[in-house]
Computed example of a mutant assay.
Amino acid sequence: MSAARYLAASIPLRVASSGSSVVLPILAVQRLHDVAIGGGLVAASLAPSVIAAPLVGVALDRTRHPRRLVAASGLVTAAAFALSAFLGTVPLWAVVAALVISGAASPFFLGGLSSFVTDGFADERRAYAADALSYNVGGVAGPGLAAIVVSVGAAGAGAFILAGASLLGAIAVSGLPMAPRARPEHGALAAIGAGTLHLLTHRPLAAVTLSGTVAQFGAGALPICAVALELQRADTPERGAWIVTAFAIGSLLGSLIATGRPPRRWRTETVMLVGFAGTGLLTIVAALDLGLPWTIAAISLSGICTGPSTAAMLLLRKQQSPASVRSQIFTVGSGLRTTAAAVGAAVAGLLAGWDAGTLIIVIGVIWVASALIMLGYPRGADPVDDDADRGRSAVGRAS
């Protein structure tokens, strides 16, 4: 499978997911004149993913047809966004219910799809570089496309575009190679226990998960603090969007570099550590009040560092996960990062009255802290043996 084929399937789904955070609040303001409802709609589309992640992972680990489940999640998401376009015409409770269902389905095409990416690549590093690129393109294109559409028309049109992207991704997923895993002999609850036990007690995986979650807390806070920074310095909060865009473009460039030339001279855990540390230090440098061009340049470079480090994180997550619980670990890991980003944004909003330059420095320190966590990664740790017997024995121990 070529990288283009995987990206053609994964990017539309992730564009739709990230774009909803722009479309739904504006839709609520336009139709119901209530921004609080918009926040509730976004929460309805995001919060269920954390709760559903372990069950979604178990389903993918046990099913004989993983493609069908991932494609179905894309169709459910498309239907939910299409229904949300009629907000104000259909009852609010119906839209909320549809978004909750789609939120519960989203782990299938977020962490779940990532757990199968190596099925179509000969090179694991290139596979997860492509997956990191998919997330970064979705993170840039989703909100950007949504913002363009709602600025020239109604937010309802934006919701339909997100629905179309989900539908396109669901169709494209049906052509991806996704090999079913050996079905464990024990039940779903035992499988959840095995996955949770491995995630918490397997030191390499625990370090990777904690580091990635802490880093995402900083990433979630950055957009709020960037707007606050330019509001305080130049009384033009719109310029904060330039800073956020610079970071997103830098992340995209870093992912493209990692996809074309995956770093091979350093150990994977070193790439993750150095990448997060570089992001943090450059973010601290960006906080210096030397003008907007300086801030944009430093933030762009910090974004570039996140491309290889995110790819390394995904690869380590795979290498340290038994095949029998791999999808569960990927969906839970993705859910933790999504939650951390949401909490980071909420905390940044509560602290928006503080000096924004100081907050940017704190974000940089958080990224550095996430890098330091990787110092706890056992040196020379071997990948987990992924054969079916090993996976079954892990479930047996948890039960």
Score class of each variant (00 low, 15 high):
201 T>D: 09
240 G>N: 06
90 V>K: 04
294 W>N: 11
290 L>C: 01
69 L>E: 14
203 R>S: 12
303 G>Q: 09
191 A>S: 15
253 L>H: 00
22 V>E: 13
39 G>D: 00
109 F>W: 02
116 F>M: 09
32 L>F: 01
64 R>A: 12
34 D>G: 03
165 A>C: 13
153 G>F: 06
253 L>I: 12
361 I>H: 00
308 P>G: 05
239 R>L: 15
133 L>F: 00
220 G>N: 07
65 H>N: 15
212 G>E: 12
347 V>C: 07
40 G>S: 03
114 S>Q: 07
297 A>C: 08
262 P>W: 05
183 R>C: 13
54 P>I: 13
332 V>S: 01
38 G>A: 09
34 D>C: 07
126 R>M: 11
287 A>Q: 05
300 S>G: 09
2 S>L: 00
182 A>I: 07
368 V>N: 08
221 A>T: 01
49 S>E: 13
11 I>P: 03
86 F>M: 05
169 G>Y: 12
21 S>R: 14
74 G>H: 13
195 G>E: 05
302 S>L: 06
399 S>K: 04
86 F>S: 06
331 T>M: 01
248 A>G: 14
254 G>K: 11
72 A>H: 07
187 G>A: 05
282 L>E: 07
136 N>E: 02
181 R>G: 02
249 I>F: 10
109 F>Y: 13
308 P>S: 07
292 L>C: 07
366 I>S: 00
216 Q>E: 11
298 A>Q: 00
310 T>R: 01
170 A>N: 00
100 V>K: 08
69 L>N: 12
124 E>V: 06
80 A>C: 04
228 A>G: 04
361 I>N: 02
359 L>N: 09
126 R>Y: 13
147 A>P: 09
157 A>Q: 10
182 A>G: 11
197 L>D: 11
208 V>N: 00
324 S>I: 05
46 L>C: 02
328 Q>S: 13
13 L>E: 13
240 G>P: 09
54 P>N: 10
67 R>I: 07
97 A>H: 10
68 R>F: 01
364 G>M: 07
124 E>H: 13
133 L>K: 04
155 A>E: 13
393 S>R: 14
67 R>G: 05
314 L>H: 14
344 G>F: 06
